[in-house]
Amino acid sequence: DTFTFTLDGIEVRLHGASEELIKTIEELLKRDIRWEELEKWIREWEK
C-alpha cells in the first residue's frame, strides 16, 4: 500500500507504510506540523 499526503506543498508517498505509522502521521498533520518536524520524526521512527 502507498500512503500519499501533501505537506508544505510537497507530495509525499510512503510505500509499505504500516497502519500504525499512517495513523501517527495523520495525527501529526492535524497539528499543522512542518516538514522539518515530520522528517525528523520519520528518521526516529526508522531506528
Rank of each mutant, 00 (worst) to 15 (best):
47 K>Q: 13
38 L>G: 00
44 E>C: 08
22 I>E: 02
10 I>L: 06
30 K>W: 05
2 T>Q: 05
11 E>W: 02
7 L>F: 14
15 H>M: 09
23 K>A: 13
39 E>S: 10
12 V>Y: 15
18 S>R: 03
28 L>C: 08
5 F>R: 01
11 E>T: 14
44 E>D: 13
28 L>W: 07
1 D>V: 09
3 F>C: 03
25 I>R: 00
15 H>R: 06
7 L>R: 01
4 T>D: 14
44 E>K: 05
37 E>F: 08
43 R>Y: 12
29 L>F: 03
4 T>K: 03
44 E>H: 10
8 D>Y: 04
47 K>Y: 11
9 G>T: 02
8 D>G: 05
45 W>F: 12
12 V>R: 02
40 K>F: 09
8 D>W: 03
2 T>W: 11
17 A>M: 07
12 V>Q: 01
45 W>Y: 14
17 A>C: 09
6 T>M: 13
34 R>F: 07
11 E>R: 01
44 E>W: 08
30 K>Y: 04
15 H>G: 05
39 E>D: 10
9 G>I: 05
47 K>R: 13
42 I>W: 06
15 H>V: 14
33 I>Q: 03
20 E>Q: 12
30 K>N: 09
17 A>F: 08
12 V>P: 00
23 K>V: 08
45 W>D: 03
34 R>L: 06
21 L>V: 13
16 G>D: 09
25 I>P: 00
26 E>F: 08
6 T>K: 02
38 L>W: 15
7 L>I: 15
42 I>T: 01
6 T>N: 10
41 W>D: 02
25 I>Y: 01
39 E>I: 14
46 E>H: 14
7 L>H: 08
26 E>V: 13
17 A>G: 04
33 I>G: 04
42 I>F: 08
5 F>Q: 02
29 L>M: 06
21 L>Y: 05
38 L>D: 00
13 R>C: 15
44 E>I: 07
40 K>R: 13
6 T>F: 15
2 T>S: 07
24 T>C: 08
19 E>H: 12
27 E>S: 09
32 D>V: 06
32 D>N: 12
21 L>W: 06
28 L>F: 09
13 R>I: 15
10 I>Y: 09
33 I>E: 02
32 D>F: 06
41 W>F: 15
34 R>G: 10
6 T>E: 15
8 D>K: 00
37 E>W: 08
41 W>R: 12
1 D>K: 08
26 E>H: 10
5 F>P: 05
43 R>T: 13
3 F>P: 09
23 K>M: 11
8 D>A: 03
35 W>T: 02
5 F>V: 13
28 L>T: 03
35 W>S: 03
47 K>I: 12
14 L>T: 01
41 W>T: 14
8 D>L: 04
21 L>R: 04
47 K>M: 12
33 I>K: 04
14 L>I: 15
19 E>F: 09
40 K>Q: 13
28 L>M: 14
30 K>V: 12
17 A>S: 03
22 I>N: 01
28 L>I: 07
44 E>R: 05
10 I>Q: 09
13 R>V: 15
24 T>W: 13
44 E>G: 08
45 W>L: 07
35 W>P: 04
3 F>D: 01
16 G>F: 07
1 D>Q: 09
43 R>L: 11
39 E>H: 15
42 I>H: 01
32 D>W: 04
9 G>D: 07
28 L>D: 00
18 S>Q: 05
26 E>L: 15
5 F>D: 03
13 R>G: 05
28 L>N: 02
42 I>M: 09
2 T>R: 03
20 E>N: 09
12 V>W: 04
16 G>P: 12
40 K>Y: 11
37 E>P: 01
10 I>C: 13
23 K>D: 06
17 A>T: 04
2 T>C: 10
30 K>S: 12
5 F>I: 14
15 H>L: 10
35 W>Q: 02
17 A>I: 11
34 R>A: 08
19 E>C: 05
16 G>L: 06
24 T>A: 15
33 I>L: 07
41 W>Y: 15
5 F>C: 09
20 E>D: 11
23 K>E: 08
31 R>S: 15
46 E>C: 10
37 E>H: 07
10 I>H: 13
40 K>H: 10
10 I>G: 01
33 I>A: 09
18 S>F: 03
19 E>R: 09
20 E>C: 08
31 R>K: 14
18 S>W: 03
5 F>M: 04
35 W>V: 05
39 E>C: 11
40 K>A: 12
20 E>P: 06
37 E>S: 06
46 E>A: 13
46 E>D: 12
32 D>G: 13
25 I>F: 03
44 E>P: 01
41 W>M: 14
31 R>E: 07
42 I>G: 01
13 R>A: 14
46 E>W: 12
17 A>Q: 02
42 I>A: 03
17 A>E: 02
46 E>T: 11
9 G>M: 03
46 E>S: 09
45 W>M: 07
9 G>P: 00
11 E>S: 05
3 F>M: 02
25 I>H: 00
28 L>S: 04
27 E>D: 12
38 L>C: 03
27 E>R: 10
